[in-house]
Amino acid sequence: MKKADLKSLDLAALWRGLTRPDPAGHDRVVPPTGFTAQLTVFSAGAMAFLAVFALALALATGRLAERWSSELAQTVTVRVSAPEDQIDRQTATVMEVLKTTPGIAEARQLPEPEVEKLLEPWFGPDVPVEALPVPRLIEVTEAAEGFDAEALRLRLQGEAPGAVLDDHTRWRQPLVSAANRLRALGLVSLLLIAAASAAMITLAAKAAMAANGQVIRVLRLIGARDITIATAFVRRFTRRAALGAAGGTLLGMAAVWALPPMDQAGGFLTGLGFQGWGWLWPLLIPVLATAIGFAATRWAALKILREVR
């Protein structure tokens, strides 16, 4: 048999058929498939729900990596530990060294209330900082051109032996890498979810069309055009995918919204969720699911129609 010419099934014609109302009852020519229909709606919903979380994860880890990276790049700490009779002198020396080091915008010794706040998670409130051998902490803000950390470290070693320069690299860098990896994983998860959704809808559509092979044959025999037959199937499956994805997205957004607030959860959970305009991103999921449903069903329709003259 000659290869089927399915030019009439162009995307625009199918899309018009999808968005147009169906007063003639074209959709009724496809037998109802109750369980398959529910399964398609449920699967699309579940995928959309997961996609919301994958998106939230990708956005959150992106923000986290960015924040840590920028903090890493801009601040360092100098810790001064020395016997009680030397600590004031060494602190003053360090401040003097920092003032004269090129590439440093600002150096600020943390006052006792701030140190107290840093220690609060371990020792509780009202810690008598002055009674503890707590090192002095100096927060250093880097200028745009940056400074030579190795040279500063050597200079401090010579002039204030109790001073230690901590540029946070050792502990922040792995975290930044981890956050970047998590963001990549989130994006890969989104792609996998989209691919799995497409596969699932294609399978469902193909199974439905294969099960309705006789219906399609009868429709062709009585003079139905390919576009009429395909639209009936595409409309049904695309709407199911859209409906399921809309429901799943709303549930997913509600679940993200219900996550513990920042001040209660702290740490990583602080950033898991959407912020401001970011709440609009998940609304793209049903649109994408609809497009996937449309493309997948069209593909299945083309495949089946090619076998029927």
């Binding site: 089927a4 010419d5 399915l6 030019k7 009439s8 062709r220 025999l221 009585i222 003079g223 139905a224 055009r225 390919d226 003259r309």
Partner: peptide, 15 residues
Amino acid sequence: LSRDGIAALRRRVGV
């Protein structure tokens, strides 16, 4: 005949 042409033919032939 294209596939749409075949559909049009079948509308003129009752079977």
